[in-house]
Design a protein around this nucleic acid. Structure first.
Lengths: 214, 214
DNA sequence: CCTGGAATCAAACGATCGTATAAAACATTC
DNA sequence: GAATGTTTTATACGATCGTTTGATTCCAGG
């Protein structure tokens, strides 16, 4: 276990604080103190706080999205033109991020979840770009697996899936708190439950518009 | 259309800024300037920024949770001991907040969604308390409607529902942006789609643990 | 008209923020 | 071991933050 260099120590400390307190509430003084480095090291190595934030988020987003695309590639090659099972598509999308739900990686999960909630126009624009390819590819694959759904319905349900995923990444710890009965939820139980939930939700018949709602 | 008093003008301005920029990024100077009131008015009427934040959130959470409980009461009275349809339970939970998705109330929706993401230990504790009764009542009702689900599975899937709801409240606007084809999603189309998605997800058979996941 | 409490105002407080600077320490190459 | 480029350090800058103060304005009750 070698001592990591300054840059990674800053990233680690920043990630921990961003994940628990949020970006705006984490000062560079807290971050550098927690990392055991000098205050000026952030501006020296990253340029500015905004760039540090971007780097911290990208460090987690990059590998996750890369694995999503690799899994989708593998599925499409294996299918060789035939249809891909919905559950496999959903797993290809969810599994790479859900891996961070293990207790020792919970902080990474929380950071991944925060990506979509830390506003900051400019930051949000740059981060959204990181997801463009993943969104495009998976929307295409899902629409082929769910030919009955119109484009608006598909996008909407895809959004529901993303929402369930993100909320789980950020709030799984709280679930055990809210539970009426003390309850242990194994991290590796979450993914299969979520795949079952989301796949069933995606497959649900389009509701008759006059039936529900008043 | 009478000019609202100072207190509500502050709440309105604060809500708008909190919803778009987040709590930490919204200064009292921005808020009071946007409200057209003096800077000191916040501390005079609310005591502190934290109390203003609490008041702003409570103003939206209160009525929503109250309506959730009223709807659940009505369903249970109508059922008179018999089973309540899952879709009706889900609608009772989702509809009160989804009403804010109409274009003129989108800001309220975004604020409702942010409740769960603005950390601030103390604030979070107080806000969580606002949901206690709703969680307790709906967990009970859902578990009666879904007797096949164990407590851990039920809570987990309930979390997925909440996640889909919150993400929709905060990010529905972005859906139209991300769409490959320009796309209009009518606000009143969202609720029935979400009820169908969530109800199907909740009903999904418990996955065989060895089948999915590697 | 007078008076007293409520509300608003301009101004300032100390604290903390992100950033910049210039010197010191370190590492590497000849 | 002197020279050169890289990294770390202590310190300070200006800006902005939430909060407080004390004076001023407002307005109803006597």
């Amino acid at each position: 276990m070698e001592a990591p260099d300054t840059k990674t120590r800053i990233l680690d400390a920043a990630e921990s604080l961003f994940a628990t307190r949020g970006v705006e509430a984490s000062s560079l003084r807290e971050i550098t103190a927690s990392a055991g480095v000098n205050l000026a090291a952030v501006n020296y190595h990253f340029g500015s706080k905004d760039d540090l934030v971007l780097a911290a988020f990208r460090r987690r987003i990059g590998p996750v999205n890369r694995e999503r695309l690799e899994r989708l590639d593998a599925l499409e090659v294996a299918a060789n033109g035939r249809a891909i099972a919905l559950e496999e598509l959903v797993e290809a999308f969810l599994a790479p991020s859900m891996r961070f739900l293990s207790p020792d990686r919970r902080l990474h999960a929380r950071l991944l979840g925060r990506v979509h909630h830390e506003a900051q126009d400019e930051l949000q624009t740059k981060l959204t770009h990181e997801f463009e390819q993943v969104v495009h590819r998976f929307v295409g694959a899902l629409s082929r697996a769910l030919p009955r759904l119109g484009p608006a319905e598909l996008l909407l349900r895809g959004h529901f899936m993303v929402g369930a995923m993100i909320y789980t990444l950020t709030h799984l710890d709280k679930l055990e708190t809210v539970a009426p009965v003390p309850l242990h939820i194994a991290a590796d139980q979450v993914l299969p439950q979520m795949i079952a939930f989301v796949a069933a939700g995606l497959r649900a018949p389009v509701p008759d518009r006059t039936e529900v709602g008043r």
